[in-house]
Design a protein around this nucleic acid. Structure first.
Lengths: 235, 235
DNA sequence: CGAAAAAAATGATAAAAGTCATTATTTGAC
DNA sequence: GTCAAATAATGACTTTTATCATTTTTTTCG
């Protein structure tokens, strides 16, 4: 079941994956081929807002949330990074402290790339810089969409979008034909959508009664993607 | 009256200004020194969502809003670009269509930089690319803050932030000691804050009664920045 | 300057989403 | 497998913000 023509998924997804693929084998190996992979358990923190960045991170497997806490301590998830993506490069490139925090959503393998190594490759490969520029610029599409959706879309619509996007992200690494399962806590889902946890639960219940999803514990299966797209109002 | 120590203004502002300043004189003149400046009247559109970018724009004077319209036609302003800034480069660098629209908020002088010229300078100056990377990365700080504020801050708080930030932007080009005036329509202010126009008016009335601002027509003068900062809850 | 148009302001009402208190279910560790 | 802790679910109620209809003020332009 594809989203082609159904939903503009490309406006809601991006990936730093392609950036690395343009590196030659030597540089690629230099950056992420080394065996400094670390395992993170669910909920563990990769970096925290305010920290001075000493390098960037590459996600070998798992999912990492980037989030911010406001004065009221309410957490807002800015982005969920996936297997194959880089995180932590914004602060490094901007030469400032981390402006958001990162924590893993599920057991993940992540390797650390020291600042010096990253900047070295950046200096010696102008094409890498341009490729990064392209990736960063595309990120804006997604962010602009998000900001726009916050004022234009209702809670249900944003939840529908979040489910569609998260499902897409959960496809990665799956075998063709395998059931896609969305495995995320109600709190995290609420923090992505920007609404209260209780509302997420109530709206999911609505989706269940409409036959759009089924759930079991925290797990969610999307049964009728077309109806969900309709509920998102972005088609 | 400075914001130093009062309010983290740097988290809400960025500028592509510095990017151009790192260019050598020759490249600088090549890009924006030429006499293809065009005047735009209030409300005129610079580019529209969906257009294929053929170049980028440099704002010699004036203010330009970047915005998106959602399915309900509600406009959300993503960013207000100022004198000295570049716009339209995201789509160009990402090699995609414009994902937002741009229109001038007040009479502006803008020059067009053809795609080829911009990319040429980018290719021949690796430092320019890295400088752009830095600028783009910093933009994320601002965007992330925005997204976080949307879920964490109330309407009044966001309005207070918007006024503080817009006031700061209106300082540019002013003579020291000159009164800062915020000159923006209630609709545009509402589109920045992401709330209904009527609410902007009601909240401004509240600010007036608290002695924080005075107004005359569309014009707003901030009389007590400290109280306003307090209302923003970000200090 | 004065009329028409645009924008700001106001008031009443409706809708959406948040909060709090509590119960039910699931998950994870021993 | 059982129990404790964590998380999901529910219901009543409050708060916030949007919407709509209308009046007043400001701006624009001949």
């Amino acid at each position: 079941m594809s989203l082609n023509g159904l939903f503009p998924i490309e406006k809601w997804l991006f990936s730093t994956r392609s950036v690395l693929n343009m590196l030659n084998e030597q540089d690629y190996t230099f950056l992420i081929g080394r065996q400094n992979i670390e395992k993170y358990k669910k909920g563990e923190i990769v970096f925290k807002e305010g920290m001075v960045p000493s390098g960037i991170y590459y996600i070998h497997s798992g999912k990492v949330k980037k989030y911010k806490k406001g004065p009221t301590e309410k957490e807002q998830i800015i982005y969920v990074a996936n297997k194959g993506e880089l995180i932590g490069y914004h602060a490094l490139l901007a030469e400032e402290r981390h402006q958001d925090s990162a924590a893993v959503l599920e057991e993940s393998s992540i390797s650390f790339i020291p600042k010096e190594d990253f900047l070295e490759v950046l200096q010696r490969s102008p094409q890498f810089a341009i490729s990064l520029l392209k990736a960063l610029s595309h990120e804006f599409t997604v962010f602009a969409n998000n900001i726009s959706a916050f004022s234009d879309a209702s809670a249900v619509e944003r939840l529908a979008i979040a489910l569609i996007v998260f499902r897409e992200k959960s496809k990665i690494g799956l075998i063709e034909g395998q059931q896609i399962v969305i495995d995320i806590s109600r709190s995290d889902l609420a923090a992505i959508v920007g609404i209260a946890k209780e509302n997420v639960i109530r709206l999911l219940k609505e989706f269940k009664s409409e036959g759009i999803i089924t759930t079991q514990g925290r797990k969610i299966w999307i049964q009728d993607i077309e109806k969900l797209v309709k509920r998102s109002n972005r088609n």
